[in-house]
């Protein structure tokens, strides 16, 4: 119970701090952030966008871990857990894509320019979409569980290509867009300690929120299954 209260307090603090803390030239107090040239107020996206992207990957990882568990033990509850994780994952994936695209409009000039990170989040969206399409096409529960588990493992092994290798390749494909992101503020930017504090608090708050939502999600699905079995 106590960690739920902490999550609430953390997220309240992060939402207030992330939006209202002023960005000044020479920060003196702990609640002031320094100016980053070229980003200014737009730097604040980091408190909300990066945690959603982080949750996207964590949810995908958890979904895969529970898929492996299902294939080993054939326990349908593991499949439900994997499904609940993926459901949250696609929501956070959409949030990360949309917030990133809006930010890109103001910082890079277009909503979408196939920068490596955008490509990888797009691939994740496609994988999630395909996974749900596969699940909805199979009726038998056991079959659905094992086939979607297999697919999520196959999809998961391709993710390193998107996350670690794609940035290298995309420079060749899209020279204009790749150059300004690789040399730009996103990678070289060293975070100020005040910002880092809020950022990590936000990361922790989002992770706890995700865990809470995931628990609620899979528990309610298990209860729903049990209720259905009673009537048949």
């Amino acid at each position: 119970m106590i960690w739920k209260i902490i999550t609430f307090l953390l997220l309240t603090f992060v939402s207030i701090a992330g939006i209202t803390f002023p960005i000044v030239e020479n920060p003196t107090a702990w609640y002031q952030f320094p100016i980053i040239p070229g980003l200014e107020e737009k730097a604040k996206i980091i408190f909300f966008h990066v945690p959603t992207a982080w949750i996207t990957v964590v949810a995908f990882l958890m979904s895969t871990v529970y898929s492996v568990k299902y294939l080993r033990k054939k326990n349908l509850e593991d499949d439900i857990k994997s499904y609940a994780a993926a459901q949250l994952g696609i929501i956070f994936c959409l949030l990360a894509t949309v917030t990133g695209a809006v930010w890109a409009k103001f910082n890079w000039g277009t909503y979408w320019n196939w920068d490596p990170r955008q490509t990888s989040i797009f691939a994740l969206l496609l994988i999630y979409g395909a996974w749900f399409a596969l699940r909805s096409s199979i009726e038998s529960e056991e079959k659905r569980a094992s086939l979607s588990a297999v697919y999520s493992i196959i999809a998961f092994v391709t993710v390193p290509f998107f996350v670690f290798i794609m940035p290298r390749i995309m420079t060749g494909l899209h020279p204009g867009s790749a150059n300004d992101t690789n040399a730009g503020p996103v990678i070289n930017f060293k975070m100020d300690p005040h910002m880092r504090l809020v950022f990590f608090l936000s990361l922790a708050g989002f992770s706890m929120l995700y865990y809470w939502m995931w628990q609620l999600g899979y528990k309610s699905m298990i209860i729903k299954d049990k209720l259905n079995q009673k009537y048949y």
Binding site: L126, A130, T158
Partner: peptide, 21 residues
């Protein structure tokens, strides 16, 4: 997909993200 329903339409949908890299 041979074990799933809607075989024809599902195939490119499932293959594309895997083949993308």
């Amino acid at each position: 997909i041979s074990k799933a329903g809607a075989k024809g339409t599902l195939y490119p949908v499932l293959s594309f993200p895997i083949l993308l890299p």
